[in-house]
């Protein structure tokens, strides 16, 4: 188990060495977002503007306009909402090469409660023209995708978890932004997951496979641009799809998949995610359970689809 914010900090340190144009812009949550090692190694490429997210986004646009690749680092709630309009106007509209890197996505800052949890970010960000939206599923995926973001031209929003989550991959796995990963092939039903709940989706897929279900499992780490080619392929063989995300069921991964399924026709989709409500303080598994984001519920949802 390791948190994705740790992956971010570790990846940054490697990137700093390799990419001299990578800078970090902090908003007084650098300690929580693991930028400390980068700051220590490259103080000349580190900026902390204090608790002023809107200014951070605008300043990053200015840095990008003079050839720098800034990694703006904050919590998902503030990165997707407090600086939303600045991201739209100053970053996405001119398509500047700014990365919005957010810890504390989903329900994972569990003890902090609803104000610091964020179940809206993927939806808000995917609505912005020109934005790329990524939610890695474990520590190794996050490390690789942070690196991918550094070489990817254009704005990227990436979401990390605060709390440790299980490993799904090993360190040798490769990732490409915009390409979903098929972790298990199957033609009866597909589980499509993004972000920190990938491990639950994987456990559910394994349990279903043990029961003889030919189950497909996809890590759709990039919500936008959605890997429509892969989905097309899956939808043409599987008529049953369950999506899993630690995000509001409105406008996140489930919505994105459902949109394509509706256009494709002939597919049934069930969305597992946060039930359009705010979280609260409490243990992370309990918060997930409140919303039915559990291994058992994923299994039940797939079986219910197969019974129809």
């Amino acid at each position: 188990m390791r948190s994705l914010r740790d992956a971010y900090g570790d990846a940054l340190l490697e990137l700093g060495e390799e990419f001299p144009k990578v800078w970090v812009v902090d908003v007084d949550v650098g300690r929580s977002c693991k930028t400390g090692a980068f700051q220590e190694a490259w103080p000349e490429r580190y900026v902390n503007v204090g608790i002023a997210e809107q200014n951070a986004a605008g300043l990053a646009a200015g840095l990008a306009a003079v050839g720098i690749t800034p990694f703006v680092t904050t919590y998902a709630a503030f990165g997707s909402m407090r600086m939303c309009e600045q991201i739209r106007q100053s970053i996405c509209y001119p398509r500047l090469n700014v990365k919005i890197m957010c810890s504390h996505g989903g329900l994972t800052p569990a003890n902090d409660g609803a104000t610091h949890q964020c179940v809206e970010d993927l939806g808000i960000m995917r609505t912005l023209p020109g934005m790329t939206v990524v939610a890695p599923g474990d520590y190794f995926a996050a490390k690789k995708l942070v690196r991918a973001a550094a070489v990817y031209e254009g704005p990227v929003y990436m979401r990390f978890t605060r709390d440790p989550i299980p490993f799904v991959y090993d360190s040798g796995e490769t990732f490409t932004i915009g390409k979903g990963k098929v972790l298990r092939e199957g033609d009866q039903a597909a589980i499509i997951a993004a972000g920190d709940v990938l491990s639950q989706a994987k456990a559910a897929a394994e349990a279903l496979a043990a029961k003889g279900v030919r189950i497909c499992l996809v890590d759709m780490h990039t919500i936008k641009p959605l890997d429509t080619a892969l989905l097309e392929q899956i939808m043409s063989v599987c008529g049953n799809i369950v999506t899993v995300e630690d995000h509001n069921i409105i406008n996140g991964l489930g919505s994105a998949v459902a949109e394509q399924a509706a256009e494709h026709g002939g597919c049934r989709v069930r969305r597992i995610g946060v039930q359009d409500r705010f979280g609260e303080s409490g243990p992370y598994p309990a918060l997930l359970e409140d919303n039915g984001i559990t291994v058992d519920h994923i299994i039940e949802s797939v079986e219910a689809l197969l019974r129809r």
Binding site: V47, G58, A61, L63, A65, S90, Y93
Partner: peptide, 20 residues
């Protein structure tokens, strides 16, 4: 040098440019 229009934002962009 930079797209503007939403008020306040250009000042941040200019500061970012100057710093960079």
């Amino acid at each position: 040098d930079i797209s503007t229009g939403s008020l306040g934002q250009g000042v941040s962009c200019a500061v970012g440019m100057a710093l960079g």
